[in-house]
């Protein structure tokens, strides 16, 4: 009869929260109550930036961690997942970290520094660009936008698009900022425009998705090692199963949100042909070089080689 705590920052309606809860239930069922996972949602225990420390210190046994928020603070090369025009799916990102020597080394560094183990995936979703402007059909349409930046890594993209200003804003302030015009453009996952009601003001979604934000079930390693082999296997299996289900669901869910967005009067513009080529050229020639400072060259090369773009 053991209990473990699972903490994540997502609000109750976020798909990642739903799957985290499912995982907790599944472990309880399969272990027939030998291991109960108590869930602390909505950042009650640890916020998005704190969960790594929370699991690492053993305050909670399992956490939901967003890769680009938690891992670059331990190894900046995790930012390779943010490079424009490199990875085009969650599978590619995960494959890079699982199969290449360079990728494995990054994950090994992160997990050993924090004393954690990654037991499964629980992705946040793919990112697109959303703006309050209407009829944006090409990259010229973004000239002079006021864009929200979350980290410095967002900057080169907005600069290349010719943004008029960039505002560093916490998520809680974005709704009002869109309302009063402090910002008019955000890059985010579709779930966020619905979850935070930002779509009250946003008019256009620009596709294709340009980034895939993975999140992870992370577990405290000493705790995981202290479990009996059977329990440990139950936890790992449950995390793997839920992870697969979550990944499939998040892409479908994101597309569904975009449909709802369109039904509410928004426009989903998917760049194709010449416009897509212009966008890709911009990413390659303007955004990528500026982001190279964030990631070591050999990591960039390995990633490009892995996805066959070198």
């Amino acid at each position: 009869q053991q209990t473990a705590k699972l903490s994540y920052h997502w609000g109750p309606t976020h798909p990642a929260a739903v799957f985290a809860n499912k995982f907790a239930e599944l472990v309880g069922e399969r272990s027939k109550g030998a291991l109960t996972i108590q869930v602390f949602p909505s950042g009650q225990l640890f916020g998005i930036r704190d969960i790594l420390g929370g699991v690492s210190s053993g305050a909670v046994e399992i956490g939901g961690a967003v890769g680009v928020v938690s891992f670059p603070t331990l190894n900046k090369n995790y930012n390779v997942t943010n490079l424009p025009g490199v990875f085009e799916s969650f599978e590619q990102i995960r494959g890079f970290f699982a199969e290449t020597e360079v990728g494995k080394a990054i994950m090994e560094d992160v997990t050993s520094a924090a004393g954690i183990e990654i037991i499964g995936f629980n992705p946040v979703g793919p990112s697109a660009v959303f703006t309050t402007r209407e009829n944006v059909t090409g990259i010229e349409g973004f000239k002079g936008v006021s864009a929200r930046v979350l980290t410095d890594a967002d900057r080169p993209r907005w600069e290349a698009l010719g943004a008029g200003r960039m505002v560093s804003l916490p998520t809680g302030e974005v709704y009002t900022a869109l309302q009063n015009g402090m910002i008019d453009t955000v890059a985010t996952v579709p779930g966020a425009i619905k979850g935070y009601s930002w779509w009250d003001f946003l008019k256009t979604a620009q596709m294709p998705y340009f980034q895939f934000n993975d999140a992870y079930f992370i577990a405290n390693k000493p705790w995981l090692d202290s479990l009996s082999p059977e329990l440990r296997q139950i936890v790992l299996d449950a995390a793997a199963e839920i992870g697969a289900e979550a990944t499939e669901a998040i892409m479908a869910e994101s597309d569904k949100v975009l449909e709802e967005f369109a039904a509410k009067g928004g426009t989903v513009v998917t760049f194709e042909g010449a416009e897509l080529e212009k966008l890709s050229a911009m990413e390659r020639n303007e955004v990528l070089p500026k982001m190279l400072g964030e990631v070591d060259q050999d990591v960039v090369d390995a990633a490009l080689a892995y996805v066959g773009k070198k």
Binding site: L52, G53, S56, P72, T73, L74, A113, D152
Partner: peptide, 8 residues
């Protein structure tokens, strides 16, 4: 030990 850095 955790050696986290800032993101600024």
């Amino acid at each position: 030990r955790l050696r986290q850095t800032t993101e600024t």
